[in-house]
Write a protein that binds this DNA or RNA. Structure first.
Lengths: 351, 351
DNA sequence: TTGTATGCGTTATCAA
DNA sequence: TTGATAACGCATACAA
């Protein structure tokens, strides 16, 4: 349709081009194509629509954002996108946001606490309507106050801040019930006969992970199991595996259960146990936390704590877009799912 | 620091504010904070920097983009972010892009071919420097021409288009060597003694999946195995599992290998085989394609074809940012990785 | 080297 | 209802 030669970069089609082609003023074209109070004469309306279609007009979003003073973007900060937990979270948030016509801009901290502040700053520059911080939350973060300042400054200019899984900051928060989830799990496992448990927390001081550890220990204690060992290997598959491999033989032999604060770590522990010649679940049970769906093919199927990611995402996006100003900390339930990796302990068990 | 009351939305800090606070003109502030030819007197420079820091200035990216006529954003279109393959791809692309100071904006088609066109249109509005389309590519897409038109229009205005895994369109393309990868795999498996193979392709007509099927069949044929059956179940874990479950008993019993065009499907097949009471790999071998890293915990470890995602991402980002105008179709190697799911076939094998 | 004036594409305000 | 005109925040050409 566009007869001009290829190659040389041409100017994008603007609202002005459309208006001229339709023989109307530029504001009129704007009203037809993007405006809300659409009181435009049908004949004009038709001409504008036709011109826009023929020219292949696309609104310049940055320009719109600038003129309107607000964008249709939500900024999402996550730790790692290749982590199934976070990619699932991101997917849910994108779905929820798109459902209400919002675009999600993702930034990744690569698990570096310092990067978080830089990212927030950079994201602010995009003038998003809201910033959602998911899944970092260190117990004693290096630049906590600077981050708070930055976020508060953002809020002061009309932006909304929503935190997921880090209820330690003075902003809207959505969280799972980490403590209760692993407490319930611990009680169920105790009922199944587990008595010698190793809990793998996280060397990286993450608040939610700490809660999971505490909840699990508490649950066991309520069930009369008090000899639980807690260790904090590196916060990863590799960290958990290496920790398990480094366990003294005597200690490893005593174990009948390893609970790790994430499914990822639980699988690392599982790999380590097997490398040591221990059978799972025959010799040792393994349990995790998160209920990552892509793990359905792991054998044995992993006992874990399920968190309703979609509920979290929905709540987070809702909080990010509502105009309520009361600071809410909503907790989404988490509940244990016992599967093959933790069968009932029988007397025939090794120890 | 900012004494003013909380609550009421305030205006964000602009370059103008900084300039005023520093007692310089706005362009000078611009030159110090964002400009390239930084010929600003040290004293002024210092004052601007200080003012910016104290006020918490963040450049308004949309405004910058508009003034400069170009943004620092790359738009990425993928099928599904919760799919480990795509999330790994997205992670790599983000990493490569961030390394050169570019931001990545992600949009998801949810595997709907029609959505692709809408998304491209919407993304264009964000005025990205480049659009990368990853991992769709239907054999006979519904609105192919409209998509091509849209992308070409985008290119005409100076944008760059890079395709990943769909070398059927007239744009820069980065692809794995699907055909060669599965051909090599087939040859290795034939060497291991596999003779009765079921190939699971994709009911959704995806070009790269077709190539994987053809390569595998060709590799077997070269090795003298010509009785290969090819079927096209739904393109998912569920599809593969259901297909395997629906297989006639006689046919299932004959099998010694199932090759699926993705790891995801291979695992679905594996689940289905086990549900039928077949042992993997003792009775039937299973192989996939993609070498998804989060599958390291699957037992038996899956034989597959490895693709160098980071190489693909690097090449894609490079192509997206270079100013070369020659249409390049770069192919990244893919090579078989034989693991536990396809051991050498012994005479003690069931059939 | 610094400042003035202008333009980027859009929306919002206000007359007409 | 429609159209001139003024913002929005920033970068650049040009003048000082």
């Amino acid at each position: 349709m566009n007869g001009s030669g290829d190659g040389a970069a041409r100017r994008p089609v603007t609202l002005d081009d459309v208006a001229r082609a339709a023989g109307v003023s530029q504001p009129t074209a704007s009203r037809v194509l993007n405006g809300s109070s659409r009181r435009v004469a049908p004949s004009y309306r038709e001409r504008v629509l036709t011109a826009a279609r023929e020219l292949g007009y696309t609104p310049n979003l940055p320009a719109q954002a600038m003129a309107r003073g607000t964008s249709r973007t939500i900024a999402l900060v996550i730790s790692l996108i290749s982590d199934p937990y976070f990619s699932a979270m991101a997917a849910e948030i994108m779905k929820q946001a798109e459902a209400i016509g919002l675009h999600v801009s993702i930034a990744v901290t690569e698990r570096l606490a310092e990067r978080e502040l830089d990212l927030v700053r950079e994201l602010r520059g995009q003038q998003p309507r809201a910033i959602i911080l998911a899944g970092t939350g260190y117990v004693e973060p290096p630049s906590e106050q600077a981050l708070i300042d930055e976020l508060q400054r953002y809020e002061e200019t009309g932006g909304r801040v929503v935190l997921i899984s880090r209820s330690d900051l003075p902003f809207e928060t959505v969280d799972f019930d980490n403590h209760e989830g692993s407490r319930q799990l611990a009680r169920e496992l105790a009922t199944l006969g587990y008595r010698n448990c190793l809990v793998l927390g996280s060397a990286t001081p993450l608040l939610s992970m700490q809660q999971r550890v505490e909840g699990f220990v508490a649950g066991l204690a309520e069930s009369g199991v008090t000899n639980t060992r807690v260790h904090q290997p590196g916060f990863s598959w590799v960290g958990a595996r290496e920790y398990v491999l480094g366990l003294p033989d005597a200690e490893a032999r005593e174990l009948d259960l390893v609970f790790a604060v994430t499914d990822d770590m639980a699988l690392g522990a599982l790999a380590g146990l097997r490398e040591r010649g221990l059978r799972v679940p025959e010799d040792v049970g393994v349990a995790g936390f998160d209920d990552i769906s892509t793990l359905r093919d792991v054998v044995p199927r992993l006992t874990t704590v399920h968190v309703a990611l979609n509920a979290v995402a929905q709540e987070a996006v809702y909080r990010a877009t509502t105009t309520d100003t009361d600071l809410v900390r909503r907790t989404v339930p988490a509940y244990p799912v016992v599967r093959d990796s933790t069968p009932r302990v029988t007397t025939s068990r090794r120890r």
